[in-house]
Computed example of a mutant assay.
Amino acid sequence: MKKLPIAVTASLLAFAPVASADVLGFGASVGYWDSDLSGEASRGNDQVDVENDLNLSNNDEINLSAYLEHPIPLLPNVRLSYVRIDQEGRGQLSTSFDVLPSGVNVSSQLDWTQADLTLYYEVLDNWVNLDLGLTARNLDAELVVQEVNSTAVSRTEVDAVLPMLYAAARFDLPLTGLSVGAHGNVIGYDGDSIYDYDAYAQYQFVGVQLRAGYRQMTVDYEDGDDRLDVDIAGPFVSAGFSF
């Protein structure tokens, strides 16, 4: 597991503004992200194309989120989110990868989970909404590539706890229940970077929220000899409530 230097973390914490919500609020949602994976995984000097060589495709996925906002000055609001991506595929290696020689048929599985704790402040809270804060992300990803009809197997693993900048904006269309918005997390340091953002349209009625949009996550991260340089992107839908 690799962590950010203390100096970087401190500089991120220094930017947080001082603001608070007008009333106590709570919300939660569950969603589905129809994501496609592209890019490369590396072990040492060996690389494999996760799309063309492994033919990974979405198998199982869950997205959960919840937030709590309060009127207490100086204390940040809290947002929790969880993403699990499970992709499987069968393909043929175009080059050698780790213990696997070029040209062999392989079966692969990507198990990706991330849990976010976000502390944020409301900077604007009317028909234009703007939140700013910091996210602590626990990222755990494992790519297993095994030769078909053989015990030869390669494992690429990334395990990291990352502080990230967080921003969310929403524009409400008065008296319609309709809104459009975007939110994202980002961090970059020492050659590693993660960009995770989405844009959406939302309809809300009697506390129920229906949302549809597009999300993209770009990860370029090295953990020891293992590296993931991948894009995960696609449309999403979610349903939730707030009060």
Score class of each variant (00 low, 15 high):
68 L>M: 13
68 L>P: 03
68 L>R: 03
72 I>C: 07
73 P>N: 11
74 L>M: 13
74 L>Y: 15
75 L>V: 15
77 N>R: 08
78 V>W: 02
78 V>S: 04
80 L>R: 01
82 Y>N: 11
82 Y>F: 14
83 V>G: 03
84 R>C: 01
84 R>D: 12
85 I>R: 09
90 R>T: 15
90 R>E: 13
92 Q>E: 11
93 L>A: 04
94 S>H: 10
94 S>T: 13
99 V>I: 14
99 V>A: 14
100 L>T: 05
102 S>P: 06
103 G>I: 05
103 G>F: 08
105 N>A: 11
108 S>Q: 07
110 L>V: 01
111 D>T: 11
111 D>F: 06
111 D>C: 04
111 D>V: 07
112 W>K: 08
112 W>L: 14
112 W>S: 11
116 D>M: 02
117 L>Y: 03
120 Y>N: 05
121 Y>F: 06
126 N>H: 13
129 N>K: 14
135 T>F: 00
135 T>G: 01
136 A>M: 04
136 A>W: 00
138 N>L: 10
138 N>D: 15
142 E>Q: 13
143 L>A: 06
143 L>R: 02
144 V>F: 07
145 V>N: 03
146 Q>R: 15
147 E>K: 08
148 V>T: 15
148 V>G: 03
148 V>C: 01
149 N>G: 07
152 A>V: 07
152 A>Y: 01
153 V>A: 13
158 V>M: 02
159 D>E: 11
160 A>L: 01
162 L>R: 02
163 P>H: 02
167 A>K: 01
169 A>V: 10
169 A>Y: 00
172 D>V: 04
172 D>Q: 13
173 L>A: 15
174 P>C: 09
178 L>H: 10
180 V>Y: 09
